[in-house]
């Protein structure tokens, strides 16, 4: 990744702390294509249950798709305590205890699984919420850090973000705000104003602009990136139609995927393009991800 003095100036002006800047420290890897670092939101493999038992298959599929970076959901490494005879409250309490007391070397071993196959965990996706204690939030950051992640990201709203603001800096990391397209909920990150409001809560916040949802909420992705790129650590790159429209294969919706990629490339913005899809397909997850990735490669050729 090339990090220019101009970008540094913009980031500094935007008020980002040095912790948040750590996002740019990653080395380009096998899915760094013509100036854009690609990764995957791995719930794209919809034919693969997201749990830690399937993690080896996830890694195998990432390699098969030629991807060297991943935004890892916590469910790929955290145990699931839910099951017959276990109440939701009991399962939640067990998970909290596990987070506070993970087995020794647990995260180091998982990081090695990814390191050994040339995959970097850029961020951990976890929906921090009201049920999290302060100690649990700290433990979440420490776990993510041990995996090599520079930050965490999740689907939380303004209220949770307000509480979360003090945490990432303590761990030398960032927390990223991810938008959906719920324009009716005043707590939701959905449009430019709500994301800007959230970013102001902490210098250690970045935005993970979900291009699909932003488009469905009739947002202007290109304008947003032009105005706020210094605070954007990643984009979730997919396609949807406007007016709360449906998800589509790349190139069939209203999201300006090609233009976004070229903006990132030509301005040398240090943001990660995380492939993501929710449209239906009769193809395997690996085949569909490959189609999306190839579409992006052509856009940058």
């Amino acid at each position: 990744m090339v990090f220019t003095r101009r970008d540094f100036g913009r980031l500094a002006l935007a008020g980002l702390s040095s912790n948040a800047l750590a996002q740019t420290a990653g080395k380009p890897n096998r899915s760094y294509i013509n100036g854009v670092q690609f990764g995957l939101q791995p719930f794209c493999y919809h034919d693969l249950a997201m749990n830690r038992e399937n993690r080896p298959i996830l890694i195998q599929r990432l390699v098969e798709n030629g991807l060297g970076m991943v935004e890892l959901h916590a469910v790929w490494y955290e145990p699931n305590f839910a099951g017959p005879g276990v109440s939701a409250e009991e399962a939640r309490e067990k998970l909290r205890n596990w987070r506070l007391n993970p087995p020794a070397g647990y995260f180091r071993d998982i990081k090695k699984e990814f390191d050994d196959t040339g995959i970097t965990i850029c961020t951990v996706y976890i929906n921090v919420g009201d049920s999290f204690t302060d100690a649990e939030i700290d433990a979440t950051f420490e776990g993510a850090k041990a995996l090599g992640a520079k930050g965490i990201v999740g689907s939380y709203g303004l209220a949770v973000a307000h509480r979360l603001g003090a945490f990432p800096g303590k761990h030398g990391m960032y927390a990223s705000l991810h938008n959906h397209d719920n324009l009716s909920d005043p707590d939701a990150f959905s449009n430019e104003a709500s994301i800007v409001k959230g970013l102001a809560y902490s210098p250690d916040f970045t935005a993970t602009l979900d291009v699909r949802h932003f488009t469905a909420g009739n947002g202007d992705c290109l304008g947003f990136l032009e105005r706020h790129h210094a605070r954007v650590s990643a984009v979730h790159l997919g396609d949807r139609r406007k007016n709360n429209g449906r998800s589509t294969p790349f190139g069939e919706g209203d999201a300006p995927i090609i233009e976004i990629l070229r903006l990132i490339r030509d301005n040398q913005w240090p943001m990660i393009a995380l492939l993501e899809f929710e449209h239906g397909t009769l193809r395997t997850g690996v085949d569909e991800v490959q189609l999306m990735f190839d579409y992006c490669k052509r856009a940058l050729a």
């Binding site: 689907s155 959906h180 397209d181 719920n182 324009l183 009716s184 909920d185 939701a188 949802h213 469905a216 949807r240 007016n243 709360n244 429209g245 449906r246 998800s247």
Partner: peptide
């Protein structure tokens, strides 16, 4: 028409 007004994170999209 979808379900644009909802308390959920992602409203049900419209498949118009």
């Amino acid at each position: 028409r979808g379900i644009p007004q909802t308390a959920k994170l992602s409203p049900m999209p419209q498949f118009s």
